[in-house]
């Protein structure tokens, strides 16, 4: 008896969870439920990272997306006044058009993935929980893009605060 099958089984469960929850996020009419299912998708995503041996990224995924962003979204949802609204939003009438656009692209992506990609295991690559290579790449090799990204986030935050302030004044 070997454990080779466990990894495939976990992979299958994660994929089912991720796609199912993703579909739920799009189709659910209740926005709190959609937010929670989104958290579930993030969790499944973190599981994928663990499966690929990138535990650090998985931990950050859960820390940032499940712990912080989902809570902020829930916060936003709960503070938004909710009126009764028609079941089908106006853009949901475009479902057939959307399906026409999505299906060929999805088919193409699947075929391309099956034909060309292969996740080869590179024994020399640093393992996911190895923090030193991660730190060197973030703070030395890619320090400039990292700083630029943080400045961008800072600008976004300042912008959000300015927007809210203006609303309060008027």
């Amino acid at each position: 008896m070997s454990f080779g099958f466990i990894e495939s089984a976990v992979f299958a469960l994660l994929v089912i969870g991720m796609i199912g929850a993703g579909v739920g996020v799009v189709l659910l009419n209740r926005i709190t439920g959609a937010a929670l299912l989104m958290a579930f998708t993030f969790l499944c995503n973190a599981g994928m990272f663990v499966l690929l041996g990138a535990e650090t990224i998985a931990a950050f995924q859960v820390l940032i997306y499940v712990g912080a962003i989902t809570v902020l979204i829930l916060y936003g949802v709960m503070f938004t006044p909710q009126r009764d609204r028609p079941y089908a939003l106006f853009f949901q009438r475009q479902t057939p058009l959307a399906a026409l656009a999505v299906v060929p692209i999805a088919l193409f992506a699947i075929v391309a993935a099956v034909v060309s990609f292969s996740f080869r295991d590179n024994p020399d690559a640093p393992r996911g929980s190895d923090l030193v290579p991660l730190a060197t790449s973030v703070f030395r090799d890619f320090a400039f893009p990292f700083e630029v990204a943080s400045v961008l986030l800072l600008a976004a935050m300042v912008g959000a605060i300015v927007l809210v302030k203006r609303e309060e004044d008027s």
Binding site: F3, I6, E7, L51, S118
Partner: peptide, 8 residues
């Protein structure tokens, strides 16, 4: 061919 790293 898709091969993932197995824990084994």
């Amino acid at each position: 061919m898709v091969t993932l790293t197995t824990f084994a």
